[in-house]
Amino acid sequence: MSTTTPVLPGVTSEKLPGTAAGRVRKRLNTRAATVVSIIIAVLWTIPTFGLFVSSLRPEQDIKTTGWWTFFSSPAFTLENYNDVLFGRSASSGQLANYFVNSVVITIPSVLFPIAFAAMAAYALSWIKFRGRDWIYVGIFALQIVPLQMALVPLLSFFSRGVTLAGITLMPAWNLDDEQKFIQVWFAHTCFALPFAVFLLHNFVSQLPGELMEAARVDGASHAKIFRTIVLPLITPALASLTIFQFLWVWNDLLVALIFAGGGDETAPLTVRLAELAGTRGNEWQRLTSGAFVAIVIPLLVFLSLQRYFVRGLLTGSVKG
């Protein structure tokens, strides 16, 4: 089979002036719309900006006055960052350690569900087998189950195993220290799958059937079709899903608290951030700088992938 990229009708996206998208685009290009969008952007950035200014102020200032007073009486210090990143004791910082934990938790927790979901989406769209639609409806319905409801049963699944009528179907996992990463990966993958399958299924099922038929006629197996035709075509969707899942896992506190625990072997940044303020919140001036350290990576990921992010969203909606 040749590997030239097939030209798909409908995927080519010249914007015709007569289409709905074209009209919207025209209207959004006026000066008034630009001013409004700039105002909205500024308003939305103010809290983050305030947080940033606050993170550079001395402790006493943070605790007694608002960040806007920085402009009338500027006082600048990097003490908070120093405290958070290279603190003297185990308590006030060493975020670096937790940073690594966050990365170790996030990368597999993003790759696993997306890999599984892409394969499941292909199978549910293009492999014909009995009950396919019911399985899809079941997965779709699983999105309704709130994550919080599954926490205790899943934790019990790990720590007690599964027994049915006295017969042990699965022994307890007995994971310790660093092994607890497995629990977190498992949990995040489970919680992400229903939505990921749903999203990718919508995408994969919209691919033209002629493509698949042509490939089958050429003698390609499902694996081959999946790798050489489907994957390249759904890359924008994969990229936007990656960003969603990445941000969700990176910012997650609840799942990490329960499945990773708070020890420094496995706890991610969010868990550490929550403790940074001290037992009675007396060191909360550290939170501002801690928060900024924690958003560096998501910011980088978002900025470098936002092209795909927007394209993924658009293709998902317009392509139809």
Partner: peptide
């Protein structure tokens, strides 16, 4: 001794006990 402190102690303890952990 493996010590762990958490700001969500009260709620988390209940979850961990219920979850067999």
């Amino acid at each position: 001794i493996d010590y762990e402190g958490s700001g969500e102690f009260e709620a988390q303890l209940q979850v961990r006990v219920d979850g067999g952990n």
